[in-house]
Design a protein around this nucleic acid. Structure first.
Length: 827
RNA sequence: GCCGGGAUGGCGGAAUCGGCAGACGCGAUGGUCUCAAACACCAUUGUUCGAAAGGACGUGCGGGUUCAAGUCCCGCUCCCGGCACCA
């Protein structure tokens, strides 16, 4: 016995440290959470978004894993064959920046942090199958990330193009659209600028409609806000393509519009200044003006471009185009309020019905023609609402008087008939830019050959291993650090054997994490990225747990990769994560924890002070899983107190293990089985905080039964205490195991089996009926649950308080809902 | 501006089928134990009137439906999150 004894009372005390040390060792030997994968039970697959190894685990990690572990451990208790894996998302910038500072290779810092976190996870007692462990920086992992690249390349889903891209001047690398937040680098906060570069892309746009449609199956299983964010990001909009002929060009220029009905009001035409088209159409006499403007646009950061209340800028390109619907000659401008990479990079401008166009028209003194009659009393500028069309007729078509929807349909039909345009659907989603000019990521497995062009590295030559750079060799300088590893770069072309060069960019770390859940079932497979059959057995992930910060990036990419691999025949599902839970954030004193605010709460210190179980319990009990919690509102001390009360029950029970509870105290048994029944429902609904509350009630009831009820020897007391241990095993594994041990059982309580409520014990002998007068509560009656309406009403009429409340009034109506309620309506 | 979510005691939160508002916990107050303190345990704890019995009020605000509304409907306010010159 490792328990210490209280000197005064001679009774064992609840020694958190000792219990933790003791059971950690036992569990390491038992390895109880290893997935069996042997068809002995239904499989369940739970994944927590794997951690980035930056230092030790923190409060946020602690919450996410505590919540995921409740679900995993509940499944273990129910007898499922559970796969609950762990890995590390171990490529990425922080390691690289640290390595530059420390003049070493990023692997050193990365490995050290991983070991620290792994050790913390073990102490934190998460129910992992440790044999699943993987790290994305291992060549044996990224070999398959490169394989994924090659497969996408093979199927036309990976390609290289030149395009204006987001550039982070601080990190000296390009960024995906998704990594630019409010014009700033998502990672370092620097203002992002644009550069025209040739980069690698994954063709996410090939899946835009399916990414949208397949969300129907996630409805109700994914948080609403995540689905909404994904929908916004994909940004489907219905409209039309309209062709415009620009003077001096043979090929028409197509624009996208959601308002084809307003075509008669298009009084000018705008091309994104940084789109190649702008330079192409520009008239010679305007060339200098345009070049100056373009230079100004290029220099501006996104922040400046988007800044509130900024006047529209632009230049006339010296050419005109013809409005196809009315033959009007309208001027063509270049401006930066039109985006080069949305739609076609050019628009028809309808100032009367679009505020941006209105602003531009005012600035450059361009005509404004209303083609939708604004509603009564409208005193704004551009009118974007519904209304009858006006000024919208030519020899062949008249929209006048039609509402917007109908006018759109007619215009599209007319355009299609004339061959001047067509109805279309446009998406905001763009292709995923995956090249990075940094070191610590998987090299792109492409060789550039002067005669053969882009040549994929043959599969049997994977992995393309990173050359071992350290310190300043990785210093970002705008070109990829790999370029300076001359021996590594120069290779012979796999196709023609002549001298060639490796691609020197590495892949975005989001590529690593876009498929890791497929490798967990077979993490050591040296012959393939994942075992198709094993993934069929386990996949898709039944429950995914992680922060909402990945609502767009990671989840969108993982969904895209899953669909692509499905179409290639590797997967039999199209959505990777059947259900998603976003845990809330742990904040402190109303603000996010940060060094600068000095309000950080250190997980290690909390665990040292209160113990693993109390910290986990506090996090789970704080509120609904998805809600943010403020650590300063919580009381780990209270959790310790509760755990101690629970633990003490296990020492008080005097009956032998295996005692038949049927002879036990009826009232306590009923309480126990009610808690079992409720806890089961609450777990199924992921309402873990309420489940903890029920466990607390059972502890209180058991305490009472021991002290002032049937006593410690009653079999119902044992049943209750054992139930407490099992329920607590989902949240407080150490305390639960210790209780289980003191109750005379062998480890491990984690697999004791989830109790089943006895329906006979859930039937109440009496229920409380409420008696109301005028809807106000005036009395309570204890009645049998099968009481008839008449009997209940008769009893209610005899209640003294009810009689008093009715007084002289006449009873107009009596509502009886036996056995719960009687309501007298009087006047 | 658009989209999503929310507002319940001093605090975190329960009440997910329209039927006892405030489960459970924290904090607070009083008590038991103690030389004392801490721990532990017991009791009280929505506001208000009342000595008490008992009553009135009470779920962001204003209306409505209903015998009955935290819950449903209409109109607001405020807070949190996301998107935003996306044609």
């Amino acid at each position: 016995m490792s328990e210490q004894h209280d000197a005064d009372r001679g009774r064992p005390t609840y020694d958190v440290e000792a219990i933790q040390t003791k059971w950690q060792k036992v569990w390491a030997e038992l390895d109880p959470f290893k997935a069996r994968d042997d068809d002995s039970a239904e499989r369940r697959y739970l994944v927590d978004m794997f951690p980035y190894p930056s230092g030790d685990l923190h409060m946020g990690n602690a919450e996410a894993w505590a919540l995921g572990d409740v679900i995993a451990r509940y499944w273990f208790q129910q007898g499922y064959d559970v796969l609950h894996p762990i890995g590390w998302d171990s490529f990425g910038l922080p390691a690289e920046n640290a390595a530059i500072r420390r003049n070493e290779n990023p692997v050193v810092w990365t490995k050290a942090n991983i070991e620290t976190q792994a050790e913390s996870f073990r102490r934190y007692a998460i129910s992992f199958d440790w044999s699943t462990r993987l790290h994305t920086h291992d060549p044996e992992y990224y070999r398959w990330t490169q394989w994924l690249f090659l497969k996408l390349y093979e199927h036309g889903l990976a390609y290289r193009k030149q395009s204006p891209v987001n550039w982070c001047p601080n990190d000296q690398t390009v960024l995906a659209n998704e990594q630019v937040v409010g014009g700033k680098c998502e990672r370092c906060g620097a203002e992002v600028t644009k550069r025209n570069l040739t980069q690698w892309y994954f063709r996410t746009t090939a899946y835009n409609q399916r990414l949208l449609d397949d969300m129907a199956a996630l409805e109700g299983h994914w948080p609403n806000r995540v689905l909404t964010m994904q929908r916004n990001w994909i940004g489907r909009s219905e409209g039309a393509h309209v062709d415009f002929l620009i003077e001096g060009r043979d090929q028409p220029v197509t624009v996208f519009t959601t308002r084809p009905d307003t075509l008669f009001g298009a009084t000018f035409f705008v091309i994104a200044a940084d789109a190649p088209l702008a330079a192409q159409v520009c008239a010679d006499e305007q060339r200098e003006t345009f070049a100056a403007y373009l230079e100004q646009v290029r220099r501006a950061t996104e922040i400046e471009r988007l800044s509130e209340g900024r006047d529209k800028t632009g230049v006339f390109l010296g050419v005109h185009t013809i409005n196809p619907v009315n033959g009007e000659r309208i001027p063509v401008y270049a401006a930066d309020y039109v985006l080069a990479d949305y739609g076609t990079g050019a628009i028809m401008a309808v100032p009367a019905q679009d505020q941006r166009d209105w602003d531009f028209a005012k600035r450059f003194d361009l005509p404004i023609v209303r083609t939708v009659r604004p509603s009564e009393g409208f005193d704004g500028e551009a009118f974007t609402g519904d209304g009858p069309a006006i000024n919208s007729a030519n020899d062949e078509i008249s929209l006048d008087g039609l509402p917007v929807d109908e006018a759109k349909r007619r215009t599209i039909a007319w355009l299609e008939r004339k061959g001047l345009g067509r109805g279309t659907i446009n998406y905001r989603l763009r292709d995923w830019l995956i090249s990075r000019q940094r070191y610590w990521g998987p090299p792109i497995p492409i060789i550039h050959c002067p005669s053969c062009g882009e040549v994929p590295v043959p599969e049997d030559q994977l992995p393309v291993v990173l050359p071992e750079l350290k310190g300043a060799e990785m210093q970002p300088k705008g070109v990829a650090p790999l370029a300076s590893a001359v021996d590594w770069v120069n290779v012979s072309c796999p196709r023609c054997n002549e001298g060639a060069k490796r691609d020197t960019d590495t892949m975005d770390t989001f590529v690593d994490s876009s498929w890791y859940f497929l490798r967990y079932p077979t993490p050591d497979d040296a012959t393939q990225p994942f075992d198709v059959e094993a993934v069929k057995r386990w996949g898709p992930v039944d429950q995914y747990v992680g922060g909402v910060e990945h609502a767009i990036l990671h989840l969108l990419y993982a969904r895209f990769v899953t669909k692509a691999l499905h179409d290639m025949g590797y997967l039999d599902f199209v959505e990777p994560f059947t259900a998603l839970m976003n845990q809330g954030e742990v904040i402190n004193q109303g603000k996010g924890m940060s060094k600068s605010l000095g309000n950080g709460v250190d997980l290690g210190e909390q665990i040292a002070a209160y113990g693993v179980d109390a910290v986990r319990l506090t996090l789970v009990f704080a509120g609904p899983p998805e809600e943010d919690m403020d650590w300063s509102d919580l009381s780990p001390g209270g959790s310790v107190r509760f755990l101690q009360r629970a633990w003490r029950l296990s020492g008080d029970v005097t009956s032998e293990p295996g005692t038949d509870p049927a002879r036990g105290d009826d009232a306590l048994r009923k309480a126990t089985h009610k808690v079992i029944s409720e806890a089961t429902q609450l777990l199924d609904g992921q309402r873990f905080n309420v489940m903890v509350a029920r466990a607390m009630e059972l502890v209180n009831a058991t305490r009472k039964a021991i002290d002032s009820g049937p006593g410690a020897a009653d079999p119902a007391v044992r049943e209750a205490a054992e139930t407490v241990a099992i329920v607590l095993s989902l949240v407080a594994p150490y305390t639960a195991e210790e209780m289980w041990h003191r109750l005379g059982h062998a480890p491990t309580v984690a697999k004791a089996g989830w109790p089943v409520a006895d329906p006979a014990l859930l039937v109440e002998q009496t229920v409380t009926a409420v008696v109301q007068v005028q809807g106000k509560m005036r009395g309570r009656l204890d009645v049998p649950p099968d009481i008839s309406a008449d009997e209940l009403e008769a009893l209610a009429r005899l209640e003294e308080k009810v009689i008093r409340a009715i007084g002289d009034a006449t009873i107009r109506k009596v509502i009886v809902r036996a056995p719960k309620l009687v309501n007298f309506v009087v006047s």
